[in-house]
Design a protein around this nucleic acid. Sequence first.
DNA 1: CCTGTTGCAACCTTCGCTGTTACGACTGCG
DNA 2: CGCAGTCGTAACAGCGAAGGTTGCAACAGG
Lengths: 144, 144
Amino acid sequence: MSANSRLTIAAHALAWIGLYQRQGHEVATSEQIATSANTNPVVIRRLLGELRRAGLVESRRGVGAGWSLARELGSITLLDVYEAVEPGPLFAMHRTTPDQGCVVGYGIQPAMQGIYEGIEKTLRHELARVTLENVLRDVLAAPR
Amino acid sequence: MSANSRLTIAAHALAWIGLYQRQGHEVATSEQIATSANTNPVVIRRLLGELRRAGLVESRRGVGAGWSLARELGSITLLDVYEAVEPGPLFAMHRTTPDQGCVVGYGIQPAMQGIYEGIEKTLRHELARVTLENVLRDVLAAPR
DNA sequence: CCTGTTGCAACCTTCGCTGTTACGACTGCG
DNA sequence: CGCAGTCGTAACAGCGAAGGTTGCAACAGG
């Protein structure tokens, strides 16, 4: 599986903004978040842009610009973030249509589709159980 | 998420071999399976080679060579197949170490690790509930 | 010895993600 | 009004995973 770090980075960014705001700041810049995540500001802006389209964060332009949460950390779940940054399904079908003249080739796609749907439903349920508030709490609970 | 079709193709191959054997044949060739899956025989041999290392299938060489199941379809679960063909974890951490001087950068990885472990455990549990016997039954149940 | 098939290496292509540079758009401040 | 700081976004290179393809040695039965 092409291990994807998008969900991790997005959660990192949200937790960072949330903590920063609790420390009394209005907005966080992509530069600050990128430094914390050890990556490029454009990567952060791209990810946060997807989160903004999903209504999780807001951005301000001009002088004193930056990013702020559109919702409380406790009301944002990992499922919200997952759906905002991960486009496709977890498992894919064949890249080319299997032989429809073969019994297995004909029936395999509907069969797997049904199975995968059930699994993805469970995955979404698990992701929905974790809020960004939970994430930030775990982050701050890390032993020194 | 880079949607991966390896699990789908592996399940296809196993179901094909299982059905073929129930029709009285000894072994199935990668050529036959590749035709059904509409792909290249080498791709099938690579995948079946991983399943063989996991003890799910056996191969015979020489004239009349081919592949056969090492276990009953009913005793092979999608989890067995998943573990045989999918190497890495579902979600990845940052590609570079986050800023350890930052509270979030320091605590984010253990936090996400713990969350991801729980989710993967649930995923494995779901995959373990489906046997290849179930898959073949669903395949044959596809409406004409 | 001949034939059919696996085992496996080597290489190319495609694709998605990350990283980087560049630059226009926007907005508050002096 | 112009400057400065930041977002928004396009463009491109690099990388790694996966699939597709070719080629050939190894094997085993007739």
